[in-house]
Amino acid sequence: MKVVLLLLNLLNVFAGICQSKSATPVMVHINGGSYLPLYSKNVQKTEVKSFYMDIYAVTNSDFLVFVKVNPEWGKSKVKSIFADSNYLKQWNSDLSFNKNMANSPVVNVSWFAAKKYCECQGKRLPETAEWELAAKASEIKADASKDSGFNQWVLNWVTKPNPVVLPSVGSTFKNFYGVYDMHGLLWEWTYDFNNALTTGESRGNSSLDNTFFCGGGSFASKDLNNYASFMRFALRSSINAKYCIANLGFRCVK
């Protein structure tokens, strides 16, 4: 009997989900490839399988829907172990924010909140390797990592401080895969960001302090000229999962 009831519930749920079709797809396919993380030996290239990625970062509006259904992730209710006191700082209350940021990417969210949001969508946070692979793309090619013009453009954004209200998603550029704003808008959480192991001392990292980190791998960095990827690595090294940062949001993958 229980099973029948369950199946009936499922049908309702399905109906609801499948009815909400939108004209434009919100995830796109990213081909698999290899990604060489910073600070690793050549042999440690990561093979990335194909995956689907959200074309936009999650917006304040999107996140509001999530909070309405999951009130324990509201600004006043979230547990301090899952988010620090800057959680959703830019919102006025648990369920409201200024209209002008409706389509801006949601920021001041912790890794725990981001992860939960993606799970509730049946998705997940991207692995760093997946994110970086998708991020290699410029408007016109899948791998623009050697393209000094593109690197310079990314670097220019990276050197600017954040505006108080971030521009809407979709306002920077659409890359080769059809994903928007991989650069130029905000930093994004990755599932395994905590594999960025550096101490704050970025200069002696070729032989890392062995008592702080058990360092079986070696740490000579590749591609010293791709400064923007250094900066993402530095950012990932400096944050903890509960941090809520004004220029750090996320998108989901599957």
């Binding site: 989900i17 499948c18 909400s20 079709k21 939108s22 999951n70 509730c120 049946g122």
Partner: peptide, 25 residues
């Protein structure tokens, strides 16, 4: 079972947009 079936539904829907956010998922 619920989770597995729901996942199947996701894959079979042509639109991947999901406004049906589950509570306590």
């Amino acid at each position: 079972i619920l989770s597995v079936l729901t996942t199947i539904v996701f894959i079979s829907c042509t639109s991947k947009k999901d406004t049906g956010v589950k509570s306590c998922c």
